[in-house]
């Protein structure tokens, strides 16, 4: 039982790390540009589809991954230049509508190009196997690799934002755009960079997940909304908050779905318990979000005054 729990916690951590890659870009865009981007989940999906095509084309997982990163970055750049920069100064409602329109356009576009049927991406030989965890339970190497890649990214982000000039500008920009402009920095360029980088992270997450999930047009929706939950819990604009909240949401969601019914069954000893567990488990992260909001309306790491 405890071994099973460990396994699920690791699975949850892996899911949480993926969430972090998506939420990091989202929260930066929110925090720095006060811009709500519903199309961010679609970038994750586009990353997975590009990975599917590029790895097939090159015949190699690694080449596929290497090409997917600049490709999704390019998609982010094009969207920023063509659409998003016209929306920064618009009301949130306009941003919601325009990016929702993009979700429709890109989801349908993907269906036209790749078809509606799910695609599969094969796993590289190097990362296929599994390692013994405890007793008879083994953990797939590929999932470990996702965790490692995510942690490396998180560390890189922490370094860039905390230790470099660009990071300093980003932190300053989140507080006061005028000040950054006064430093002689082209704020438009800075935004473009953040956006493209966020798109690349989402695409990276999509590419990494493609060998273990089927790639389909709806895959971006779920991750987008969980990304919102993560940002609300962690606090808008906070990378550290996004990291903590991602792991929290990933683990609670994964563990809850497996153990919710089991635990309830032990307590209630009723057939209805399984149904109740199945009902409550997917709602857990939202209940967690509500509870944290009651306690701290600006999230765990949000600024205290709105």
């Amino acid at each position: 039982m405890s071994n099973l729990l460990l396994l699920q916690v690791l699975n949850g951590a892996q899911f949480g790390i993926l969430l972090f890659l998506v939420a990091a870009g989202l929260t930066l865009v929110f925090g720095i540009m006060d811009f709500i981007n519903l199309a961010h989940g679609v970038l994750y999906m586009v990353g997975a589809y590009l990975m599917a095509s590029l790895s097939m084309l090159t015949g190699s997982f690694w080449w596929g991954l290497l090409l997917t990163l600049p490709a999704t970055m390019l998609v982010g750049l094009v969207l920023e230049v063509a659409i998003f920069r016209r929306l920064y100064d618009r009301p949130h409602l306009d941003q919601v509508l325009a990016t929702f329109a993009l979700v429709m356009i890109l989801s349908e576009g993907v269906k036209i190009i790749w078809g509606a049927a799910p695609l599969n991406v094969s796993m590289p030989n190097l990362l296929s196997g599994s390692i013994p965890l405890a007793g008879p339970i083994r953990f797939p190497v590929y999932r470990l690799a996702i965790i490692a890649a995510g942690l490396a990214t998180a560390f890189g982000l922490w370094f860039v934002i905390g230790r470099t000039r660009i990071g300093m500008l980003l932190r300053a920009g989140a507080h006061d755009r005028a000040m950054v402009s006064a430093l002689g920095v082209d704020i438009g360029r800075l935004f473009m960079l953040v956006f493209a980088f966020g798109a690349m992270l989402a695409g990276f997450a999509g590419a990494m997940v493609s060998p273990i999930l089927s790639v389909d047009p709806g895959m971006g929706d779920q991750i987008l909304i969980l990304g919102f939950v993560v940002i609300v819990i962690g606090g808008v604009g906070s990378i550290r908050g996004a990291f903590v909240a991602s792991l929290l949401v990933g683990i609670i969601d994964t563990v809850g779905r497996i153990f919710g019914p089991i635990v309830l069954k032990m307590v209630l000893e009723l057939d209805a318990a399984t149904q109740a567990g199945r009902t409550v488990a997917p709602m857990l992260v939202y209940i967690l979000m509500a509870a944290i909001l009651c306690w701290r309306p600006n999230g765990l790491f949000g600024r205290t005054s709105a």
Binding site: F30, D34, I36, H92, V96, I225, F228, V229, I231, V232, V236, P282, M283, Y286, I287, M289, A290, L293, C294, P297, A306
Partner: peptide
């Protein structure tokens, strides 16, 4: 309703999804 702006949008979206 304890929140404003972008937060309100995200939270209502999350509750809807719940």
């Amino acid at each position: 309703l304890r929140t404003r702006g972008v937060y309100f949008i995200m939270i209502t979206l999350a509750f809807g999804q719940m």
